[in-house]
């Protein structure tokens, strides 16, 4: 929520970010599944955006990106930039579509992974990566997107379970297309 800081939510998001980075870098990054490496960072950021909205999602993306880049001694800011987009877009989806659609986590997981991997690649090329794009890299990118799409359901469920007690509004009670900015609600006509 903008303007008000939910301290409990911030604490839970901080714990979530730290646990995610530790589990991602020490476990999932070292366990290839069918040649692909699952990247949970965009999935968690997507889930936070879906549950908490675009601002919290974008902020979470920035924070997780910063921690990942710091931990891995990578170019700081690039992962943050990509994950900001993931968190913000997932939050916007929550506002304009039905977040309770059972297929939403899968589609959003695939989208988040696609934005993350492709965005990261574009960033690398813009920063001077001067090697040709190989077919195998494309295949691995696709494999990562598919793997992340499959993992999106349990990841979203876990994040929901962790954050629901401190969320100001239970997303399960949200109406379909509840949020509009153009004054189209019938209540405005009354």
């Amino acid at each position: 929520m903008i303007g008000q800081i939910n301290v409990q939510l911030v604490v839970r998001l901080s714990i979530l970010a730290l646990v995610l980075v530790l589990v991602q870098l020490m476990f999932f990054a070292q366990v290839p599944v069918f040649g692909a490496i699952a990247d949970l960072s965009p999935l968690v950021v997507m889930a936070v955006g879906l549950l908490c909205g675009p601002v919290t999602g974008a902020a979470m993306g920035f924070a997780i990106g910063l921690i990942v880049d710091t931990a891995l001694l990578q170019t700081m800011g690039l992962t943050s930039l990509v994950l900001i987009a993931v968190g913000y877009l997932a939050g916007r989806y929550r506002e304009v579509r039905d977040p309770q659609n059972p297929l939403a986590p899968i589609a959003l997981g695939a989208g988040a992974a696609a934005i993350s991997t492709i965005g990261y690649g574009l960033g690398q090329f813009l920063l001077g990566f001067n090697h040709p794009l190989s077919w195998l890299l494309v295949k691995q990118t696709l494999a990562t997107i598919i793997l992340d799409a499959l993992l999106a359901v349990p990841v979203t469920a876990l994040v929901r379970r962790w954050l629901t007690p401190v969320l100001p509004e239970d997303p399960r009670r949200r109406r379909r297309r509840a949020y509009t900015t153009g004054g189209l609600s019938p209540l405005h006509k009354a």
């Binding site: 903008i2 303007g3 675009p54 601002v55 974008a58 902020a59 993306g61 920035f62 990106g65 910063l66 170019t75 700081m76 800011g77 690039l78 943050s80 930039l81 900001i84 913000y88 920063l127 900015t181």
Partner: peptide, 23 residues
């Protein structure tokens, strides 16, 4: 909406500043 866009812009700007400074 204005606040949301302002926060987004701020975060993106921070990321770009970090990126530029690090690079």
């Amino acid at each position: 909406v204005r606040r949301r866009r302002a926060v987004l812009g701020l975060l993106v700007a921070c990321a770009l500043i970090l990126l530029t400074a690090y690079f």
